[in-house]
Amino acid sequence: MGTIIETNNLRAYYITNAYGVERTVKAVDDITLRIQEGEVYGIAGESGCGKSTLLRVLLNAYDPPLTVVGGEVVYHLDGERVNAADMTEEQQRDLRWRTISYIPQGSMHVLNPVRRIRDSFHDFISAHRDVSKAESFALTANYLRDLGLPEKVLASYPHQLSGGMRQRVTIALATILWPKLIFADEPTTALDVVVQRGVIQMLKDVQQNEGSTLVLITHDIGVHANLADRIAILYAGKLVEEAATQTILESPRHPYTRFLIESLPSLDSREERLSIPGRPPALDRPPSGCRFHERCPLAKDICKTIEPALIEIAPKHFTACHVVEEELSHASAV
């Protein structure tokens, strides 16, 4: 299993210039990651931390004001290294939906309200493959049956379906051509727990049936816990921690991750839980040094001035924190 997509020191900024006032929002700042073939890679973080921006750059689907100012996104397709920035329009169109697919945020609203579900499926399939209506209907019916969706969905209009069913239809739509790489942006955010569970179950099925790679973006750690193999924690445009799901949940090291995990309420206890002090920083003027230092109870002087580097503190466990780094060097010195 090799890498399927990688980024190297990726920087993507929103650069606007309105009435001579220039404003730069550093939404993705120096992010390096490698996503392996066949894994579920979770990206977690609060709103405004750059999750969706990162996804747009990974998908190579961005327009100004979002600009990639540094670094690169590289796809590994059939043993070939393809730099996303060098692809032509045609190559990209060819790639999308067949090799790379995307389940957008709020995707239950993407279905055409005046077309039956099966017609929407035909529209999408016929755009990429030369199929007759009967063939695409058969393909769709088969696929939905495999995923356990009821047949009557096909003849329905979107408004007749419940939110969770619409969401699952959209996921089926995005994956019917068996893409190798699926991006999902907050696929369950607007849903309640029972429906959310059904949707996650289905994403899991799709991913496992074909061994696709799934990049899952959500702020809900609970969803990551049930789906992701590895989790990356984003804070204010920076990758602050990355490790296997188990490691992130059981022994998080970065203070932000620790807060995030510890503040989750659970049905085990009603004891008071602390919330993270302060608020996420604005990305047009990010704090100096470590971007978390203003909210961090462990912050030292060095955190205010020098940006911590992402280091491997244990095998395949990366974190960017001066305090953790210091503890480690102490431990190794003793």
Binding site: I200, Q201, V223, A225
Partner: peptide, 17 residues
């Protein structure tokens, strides 16, 4: 969704269509 991986969902559930 539990954050303890031991509690991951095993059985399937039905949803209202």
């Amino acid at each position: 969704p539990s954050i303890r991986s031991s509690d991951a969902w095993n059985e399937k559930i039905d949803l209202a269509v």
